[in-house]
């Protein structure tokens, strides 16, 4: 597929999304119309802003069709999608660890997490493990191998953030403690 074909495909996708927004999403999900009558006075309704946005999106798609010969859209090769997928996976895993490590360990210890969310070491468990996995995982992805240097950096970054946000400020909560 050439760059101009990709441009055409992008324009078609944007046009389809804009039309779906104009014809389906806005009518179904906005209470008032583009212009409404309230107490016999005309005023702008909530549909105006998204409708204008969708029209601009549609206009952009149309302009892109005219530009397709000179505006080659770079491709999204399989490697890029795999890289993006792995990045999202590592970050999502780290979120899960951040969110659940502390509560799970307190359950195992026969305790409730909420009263302990501001007490060491409980408040650091989720952030420590999740943050470590996030940094070490992304370093490993970038370097294509696990390295002691990466794990050391991950540990130092987590400790540094605890030192910056948690130690000097009583009112700031590290992830996930604000959720409890």
């Amino acid at each position: 597929m050439t760059g101009s074909h990709r441009t055409l495909l992008l324009a078609a996708a944007c046009a389809a999304f804009a039309l779906a927004t104009l014809l389906i999403w806005i009518p179904a999900d906005v209470d008032s119309s583009v212009i409404q009558l309230v107490r016999r006075r005309a005023s702008i309704g909530d549909a105006m802003a998204p409708a204008v946005a969708a029209v601009i999106l549609l206009l952009g798609a149309v302009v892109l069709v005219f530009e397709r010969q000179r505006e080659a859209t770079p491709g999204l090769p399989r490697e890029s999608l795999v890289f993006l997928g792995l990045t999202v996976l590592i970050i999502a895993l780290s979120f899960v660890l951040m969110r659940w490590t502390g509560p799970m360990l307190t359950v195992l210890a026969g305790l409730d997490y909420r009263p302990l969310r501001a007490s060491a070491p409980w408040k650091y468990l989720g952030f420590g493990l999740g943050g470590f996995v996030l940094v070490a995982g992304l370093v490993a992805l970038a370097e294509r191998r696990f390295s002691w240097r990466g794990t050391l950096v991950a540990a130092l970054v987590v400790l540094g953030l605890i030192a910056i946000y948690d130690l000097p400020f009583d009112d700031l909560l590290l992830p996930p403690n604000g959720d409890f």
Partner: peptide, 22 residues
């Protein structure tokens, strides 16, 4: 310019989500 308008339209649309006067 086409991509610029698409970028701008998306920004306006995302900003419209959850806002409004209704």
């Amino acid at each position: 310019i086409g991509k610029g308008l698409i970028s701008m339209g998306l920004g306006l649309l995302i900003a419209a989500i959850g806002t409004g006067q209704d």
